[in-house]
Simulated assay, not measured.
Amino acid sequence: MTDNNTTIDWEKKWQESHTPWDAGESSPALVQFLKEHSDLLPIKGKGLVPGCGSGYDVVLFATPDRHMTGLDMSPTCIQQVKEKRGTGNGQYDFICDDFYKFQFPQGGYDMVYDYTFLCAMPLEMRPQWGKRMAEIIKPGGVLIALMYPLNDRSSQPPHTVSVPLFHELLDENFENIFLEDAIGHEDRIGDEKMSVWRRK
């Protein structure tokens, strides 16, 4: 990628197994958040993890009462994750589609989790990200966002994000109900915050 407007070929990266963002597990920050703040999540309903990659977070969030869907636009990614994860006895599934165009459930999602998804967007698409989140999350539902990276990066993804950016993109339709420093993967400590946004 040479500039902010160039689209990365994610399918090629998965075909070539060039996935340096894959840490082999869910972020420790998310695991800790679920232990300490599960009361901020819907107990039941439908959830989505866009840019789900290897599906760690989809499996982590899924319960018998909370069905999770992992979404990715790479056919190779989705094929691999389906072979590896299965369906968890119907507690989750994986679909290959475009986040901005896919048919979401009638009534919307009860929760969406974003981690390393917004930061992978071309910068000019960020306003669309905010509008789409408002479209697919039902009133009273939540967006859980593990903000990364908060420190300056190069022109290539992951693009830098910030707390003010999230407010800019979400405040019209969401209320920020949780925000704190996150202790995630060792190479990202000091570069992340966990946040929860409730749909108005």
Score class of each variant (00 low, 15 high):
residue 41 L to W: 03
residue 102 F to N: 01
residue 50 P to E: 14
residue 46 K to E: 11
residue 65 D to S: 15
residue 123 L to K: 15
residue 121 M to H: 10
residue 102 F to S: 02
residue 40 L to I: 13
residue 75 P to T: 11
residue 48 L to G: 05
residue 126 R to L: 03
residue 83 E to P: 02
residue 131 K to D: 10
residue 121 M to N: 14
residue 53 G to D: 11
residue 134 A to L: 08
residue 100 Y to W: 09
residue 63 T to Q: 06
residue 61 F to W: 06
residue 99 F to P: 02
residue 44 K to D: 14
residue 64 P to V: 00
residue 91 Q to Y: 10
residue 79 Q to N: 14
residue 34 L to D: 12
residue 37 H to F: 13
residue 97 D to I: 00
residue 90 G to V: 07
residue 99 F to K: 01
residue 77 C to D: 08
residue 132 R to I: 01
residue 58 V to N: 06
residue 34 L to M: 15
residue 85 R to I: 05
residue 123 L to Y: 01
residue 111 M to H: 02
residue 71 L to D: 00
residue 81 V to R: 08
residue 120 A to N: 13
residue 114 D to T: 11
residue 60 L to D: 00
residue 124 E to R: 09
residue 32 Q to R: 15
residue 34 L to I: 11
residue 29 A to P: 01
residue 82 K to E: 10
residue 125 M to F: 02
residue 125 M to E: 13
residue 113 Y to C: 05
residue 106 Q to H: 11
residue 125 M to D: 15
residue 96 C to N: 15
residue 106 Q to V: 08
residue 120 A to E: 09
residue 28 P to A: 05
residue 134 A to K: 08
residue 41 L to N: 09
residue 33 F to Q: 04
residue 36 E to T: 14
residue 128 Q to A: 15
residue 86 G to M: 08
residue 39 D to V: 06
residue 114 D to P: 07
residue 74 S to K: 03
residue 93 D to P: 03
residue 122 P to S: 03
residue 92 Y to F: 14
residue 111 M to V: 01
residue 125 M to K: 13
residue 109 Y to I: 04
residue 109 Y to E: 03
residue 114 D to C: 03
residue 36 E to P: 02
residue 135 E to I: 05
residue 138 K to R: 15
residue 54 S to T: 12
residue 135 E to C: 04
residue 48 L to T: 06
residue 94 F to E: 10
residue 117 F to C: 11
residue 93 D to A: 09
residue 40 L to E: 11
residue 46 K to P: 01
